[in-house]
C-alpha cells in the first residue's frame, strides 16, 4: 500500500505579487485537496496572516515589492518578532542562477523552486517539505534547516561538534 499525503490537513500561505503565478500555485494546491490556502501580495500582509492564523507551509516569491522574499525569509528565521522561526518556506523564483540558490540556502530556505516550473517540480517540493522534515541548526551565523541534504562519507574532523 502506498503512503499518501492528505493535503486537507495542511494550511498554506502563498506570498506572491504576481497574480498569475499565485493563481497557478493556488489551483495546484486546491486540486491536491488543500482547503486552507491564503494568498497575499506582500511580506507585511504575510506577517499579519502568520500572526493570526496557523500556517504550516509558506510558498514565497523572491521578487516582491517593498521587502523582498529574502528579507522576508531573514525576518522569519532570525528576528525575535518572527511569528514562527521553524516554518517551512518554499522559495519560488525566476532567479535560478547558482548564487541565488546558495544565498537562499544560507538564509534558511527549506526548498527552492526555479521558475518556470511545472506541476511535477512543485509537487516534489511539497512532498519533500511534508515527508522529510529536516533538523534545524542554530549557530552564531545561521539558523535554519540543516543544509546538508546528502549523507556523504567524510574523513575529516566533525567541526559541528568540536573545534578544530
Amino acid at each position: 500500500m502506498n503512503a499518501k499525503i492528505d493535503f486537507s490537513k495542511i494550511s498554506f500561505l502563498i506570498v506572491d505579487g504576481d497574480k498569475i503565478s499565485a493563481q497557478v500555485v493556488y489551483d495546484t494546491l486546491a486540486y491536491l485537496g488543500a482547503s486552507h490556502i491564503q494568498r497575499v501580495k506582500t511580506p507585511n500582509d504575510a506577517f499579519d496572516v502568520l500572526r493570526t492564523e496557523k500556517i504550516d507551509i509558506v510558498i514565497c516569491e523572491w521578487r516582491l515589492h517593498g521587502m523582498d522574499g529574502l528579507e522576508f525569509l531573514d525576518v522569519m528565521r532570525n528576528s525575535t518578532s518572527s511569528p514562527n522561526r521553524f516554518i517551512p518556506v518554499i522559495m519560488l523564483t525566476a532567479h535560478s542562477e547558482h548564487r541565488y540558490v546558495t544565498t537562499a540556502r544560507d538564509l534558511g530556505i527549506t526548498e527552492f523552486l526555479a521558475k518556470p516550473f511545472n506541476a511535477k517540480a512543485l509537487y516534489s517540493r511539497l512532498v519533500s517539505v511534508i515527508t522529510r522534515p529536516r533538523v534545524f541548526v542554530n549557530t552564531g551565523t545561521y539558523f535554519g534547516p540543516d543544509r546538508r541534504r546528502r549523507q556523504v562519507e567524510f574523513d575529516g574532523p566533525d567541526r559541528r561538534s568540536l573545534d578544530e
Binding site: I10, D56, I130, T131, P133, N138, T139
Partner: peptide, 17 residues
C-alpha cells in the same frame, strides 16, 4: 562549538501522511 541541533518537527508529517 556553539552549535545547537534542533530535532526535526514531525507534526506536519504525522498529520498529513
Amino acid at each position: 562549538k556553539n552549535v545547537q541541533i534542533i530535532p526535526a518537527q514531525t507534526d506536519l508529517k504525522r498529520r498529513a501522511v
